[in-house]
Design a protein around this nucleic acid. Structure first.
Length: 912
DNA sequence: GTCGATACGTAC
DNA sequence: GACGTACGTATCGACG
């Protein structure tokens, strides 16, 4: 049977635009969506097709707009960056030889629907390539859907599986659910589940409406209320199959491609590999799609049926000595080895290795199981033997390796005496440096985003929640597919990401000189952990608990009854409804707030707010810190091991979790007692070294403001110096209040604070705060110029950068939403300073780690954004103090000195 | 039981 | 609406 492929161009254009980072070519023209479209065309065409059309929406009104003026009213207009890519997209699609259909007055959906039905009538099989679920209504024995973004196809069975209704019921289903994007109203509170339930009970919408009286509850009322508008919704979601068209399916054959035009377009949009392929006369689709990714190899015929399983590549399960030897031989000559470990735990400190996967070229990977243990599990090579064989390669710094989140594997393998060296690349970090704003850098997301490939998910293999099993319980065939794919995809991702990174010298250098070298440093810190005096913390927990009970009783008395002090909702009822206190502060949802600011404001009117404030302070300390930390000590090491995250903060900072060691209290005396439980072992001392005012110094450097630079070069108290300038007095005559105001201005400026915010912070009126800021800017004009320039650059280029070239793309700068836009501008102001500080301390960590590597009398323990904490043997303290200070202040050369203060003590509190 | 939203609070 | 970046705990209601 001949086939017709219909590509939903508009749907892909939007999806590619939103899924891919805002890539640009050398001229600064946006190219991300183009890249995605070309990738999609390749996947679609790989299947081959007799007839094909690229269908898109033409501008202008359609029958749906006439039917319903609010149709698509919620759709934002097309972003400029996307609009700019439409014309080049059409040129590339045309030059590749695709027939293009844009019919004025008819939506792409209806063109596709009509062609699909015509094809059916002519005995032609149709594949609709789209990401839009609405097309499920067209699915039949000879019409299927394919989504190349998620690598899924949908036939009749698939529709039933996905929606719970048959294809011919999809129109009714969509009518009931509605579509908020297209502004099609459905039945209120009726989602996919309810719609499927009703349509299982009644054959169609008409039958449901006839029986609407029988549906009970609120949802029944909603259904009855919606009945009058359902026919309109139904018409809106129904794809037409009878619009007049000039072309028949059989008119839609591929045309020869226009090599000259393609050459010009590829060159212009920096599709370098595509260009190369074109010159070599190669396959233009594969070449254009992924500048450095080899097209997935067709599934090869199994060599030995039981040893090879199907997948996107040739994956092998290695269970014999011979095959292990063969793979070791491959590793010997591989230019780059992708590796991944499968384990029993997400926590590297507790994980046992269950298997190792390796890939040496795209599509060729293996999984070596060593610890799968379930009834009937086949024989496997021993863990000791396999790891022993891999050790020389993994430890050889001259053998480049690539991982996805390699820090995890480094730590896991270190349990087995393997110190991984030569981690040359990490795809998580490649993605992070290319576009930190893309919130997720996990492998599944990256495969989807950069390869258009849907991976096997961990949950699909091991389940989740209570039903989750250990990877060691997974049968070898399933485990092998999953694990080998991990290594394969890691390698493919690297081939897709590295060329893009390499093409941008500043990003390349942030990645190679900062992010990659910091990986083993963080890995080592996590493994080292920090010694905690758990008994001290348990004692504090008890004391806190006692005081909390007392406060609780007093609070009950003050309120006149018992209530849950931990529930803001109940507290709100007591304060504002029962006691009738005035609500001054509102939460984002409009509720009267019970936060600290609100309670402080009420503390003079009633005794309860103060009791709550005190209670909350203690509750926070106990739940988040004393209880938690005491319970999280690793029994094997006797220490607390945090996880540091390199891909979590958009500005380049490192974050910490499980436990978060970057928000241990310091501001209050009570809070600092927790730091007293972070101790040095006998014979050792805690050394804490922090940068003084690093972000403000960076602001001085980046802005070049003479006054601010001078304040730092002269040394002394920068806030006092600022106050002297702003208030026009001698530094010695600055009052406490003046200094406080100057400090608030200094900090606020770095966060993009307004006069309104400053007024609130200082408790002065807005005019006075405005006055302060005006005086500040007249004295420090360079700072204002720098901020204006940063804002300008952000708008011009869509991103801001740090001193070392790390980029932060800002999504909302062009938002029509005023609040979002203003927020993006503040982030743009802050990112260069916060990000440069992050770059500097990472550089310091790398140089400190290299310096202490040969020593056994000093260990890096923690990083808290502008502070490094170490433990040092007593006899080495003096030498280390001097060395740390030198390495940290030498981590960057700015126009102001980088001042570092170093403290020593028996615990972290004392070391400050 | 699990999950997500909301509120709150700790750090730099 | 009004100060940037994180992570963690508790409550509460929805869901199955």
């Amino acid at each position: 049977m001949p086939t017709l492929t219909l590509i939903d161009g508009s749907s892909y254009l939007y999806r590619a635009f939103h899924a891919l980072p805002p890539l640009t070519n050398a001229h600064g023209e946006p190219t991300g969506a183009l890249f995605g479209i070309v990738n999609m065309l390749r996947t679609t065409m790989k299947a081959g097709s007799d007839y094909v059309a690229f269908v898109c929406d033409a501008p202008g009104r359609t029958f749906r707009d006439d039917l319903y003026p609010e149709y698509k009213a919620n759709r934002p207009s097309m972003p400029d960056d996307l609009r700019a890519q439409v014309e080049p997209m059409m040129k590339i699609v045309g030059a590749l030889g695709f027939p293009i259909l844009c019919v004025p007055g008819v939506e792409a959906d209806d063109v596709i629907g009509t062609l699909a039905r015509q094809a059916s009538a002519a005995g032609i099989h149709t594949v609709i390539s789209t990401g839009d679920k609405d097309f499920a209504q067209l699915v039949g024995t000879d019409i299927i859907l394919i989504n190349t973004m998620t690598n899924t196809t949908l036939d009749i069975e698939g529709v039933i599986g996905k929606f719970g209704v048959r294809p011919e019921q999809i129109v009714d289903y969509l009518t009931l659910v509605g579509d908020s994007i297209d502004n099609v109203p459905g039945v209120e509170k009726c989602g996919p589940k309810t719609a499927a339930k009703w349509l299982a009970e009644y054959p169609d919408l008409d039958a449901l409406i006839a029986n609407a009286a029988k549906i009970g509850g609120k949802i029944g009322e909603n259904l009855r209320a919606a009945i009058p508008r359902l026919p309109l919704s139904r018409e809106l979601v129904t794809i037409r199959v009878d619009v007049p068209l000039d072309q028949a399916p059989t008119d839609l054959a591929m045309r020869p491609r226009d090599v000259e035009a393609l050459r010009e377009l590829y060159a212009r949009y920096d599709f370098k590999a595509a260009l190369k392929e074109l010159e070599a006369g190669g396959d233009s689709f594969a070449a254009a799609a992924a500048s450095a990714t080899a097209a997935p190899a067709p599934a090869p015929a199994p060599v030995v049926a039981t040893d090879v399983f199907s997948g996107p590549g040739e994956y092998e399960l290695v269970t014999t000595e011979d095959r292990l030897a063969a793979w070791l031989e491959k590793l010997e000559t591989a230019p780059l080895i992708a590796f991944d470990t499968e384990t029993t735990s997400i926590d590297a400190m507790r994980a046992e290795v269950v298997g190792v996967s390796l890939a040496v070229e795209p599509g060729k990977a293996c999984y070596i199981p060593v610890g799968h243990d379930y009834p009937g599990a086949p024989a496997q090579l021993s863990r000791e033997h396999v790891l022993g064989a891999l050790k020389p390669i993994l430890e050889d710094p001259t053998r480049p390796k690539v991982g996805q989140h390699g820090k995890y594997d480094i730590n896991v393998l270190s349990h087995y005496g393997i110190e991984v060296r030569g981690l040359a690349h990490d795809t998580m970090l490649e993605s992070y440096i290319l576009n930190a704003t893309a919130t997720r850098h996990d492998m599944d997301s990256l495969a989807q985003r950069y390869l258009g490939y849907t991976t096997v998910k961990y949950e699909e293999v091991c389940g989740k929640g209570a039903k989750q099993i250990s990877f060691s319980q997974v049968d070898l065939d399933t485990a092998g597919k999953y694990a080998a794919e991990d290594a394969d995809i890691t390698l493919r991702l690297h081939h897709a990401l590295w060329p893009r990174l390499e093409a941008e010298p500043s990003l390349r250098s942030v990645y190679l000189d900062i992010e990659i070298p910091v990986v083993p440093v963080l890995a080592r810190m996590e493994r080292t952990g920090v010694l905690i005096d758990a008994n001290e913390l348990r004692m504090q927990s008890q004391q806190l608990g006692k005081r909390m009970v007392e406060l609780q009783q007093k609070a009950y008395a003050a309120a006149g009854h018992e209530f849950n002090l931990d529930s803001p909702k109940q507290l709100q009822a007591v304060l504002f409804d029962e006691l009738g206190l005035p609500a001054k502060v509102k939460t984002p949802t409009g509720q009267p707030s019970t936060n600290e600011e609100a309670l402080e404001a009420l503390a003079d009117s009633h005794e309860l707010p103060r009791l709550i404030l005190d209670y909350r302070g203690l509750a926070k300390l106990r739940s988040t810190y004393t209880d938690k930390l005491a319970g999280i000590v690793n029994p094997r090491t006797g220490r607390v091991h945090t996880s540091y995250h390199q891909g979590a903060v958009a500005t380049g900072r490192i974050s910490s979790s499980d436990p978060n060691l970057q928000n241990i209290p310091v501001r209050t005396e009570e809070g600092r007692r927790i730091r007293q439980a972070f101790v040095a072992p006998p014979g050792w001392r805690i050394v804490a070294a922090d940068y003084s005012q690093i972000e403000l110094r960076i602001m001085a450097h980046l802005s070049g403001d003479e006054g601010l630079v001078r304040a730092f070069t002269e040394g002394g108290d920068v806030h006092r110096a600022t106050a002297a300038e702003v208030f026009g007095v001698a530094p010695d005559d600055v009052t406490t209040n003046q200094r406080r105001a100057a400090k608030a201005i200094n900090f606020g400026l770095m966060y993009g604070m307004s006069a309104f915010g400053l007024a609130r912070q200082l408790g002065v009126d807005r005019g006075e705060a405005s006055d302060y800021m005006a005086r500040y800017f007249s004295r420090f004009a360079g700072v204002r110029a720098f901020m204006d320039a940063t804002r300008e650059q952000a708008h011009q280029r869509g991103y801001v950068e740090t001193l070392f070239g790390r980029r932060l793309y800002l999504e909302n700068l062009t938002s029509r939403n005023q609040a979002l836009r203003a927020g993006a501008e503040r982030a743009a102001i802050n990112a260069p300073m916060q990000g440069t500080a992050a770059d500097i301390i990472k550089r310091a960590m790398i140089s400190v780690a290299a310096w202490i590597a040969p020593r056994d009398d000093v260990r890096l323990l923690m990083q808290v954004h502008d502070e490094l904490v170490l433990e040092v043997r007593e006899d080495a303290v003096d030498a280390v103090k001097a060395g740390i200070e030198a390495h940290m202040s030498g981590a960057a050369t700015l126009s102001v000195p980088l001042q570092v203060s170093v403290g020593v003590g028996a615990n972290w509190d004392e070391a400050h």
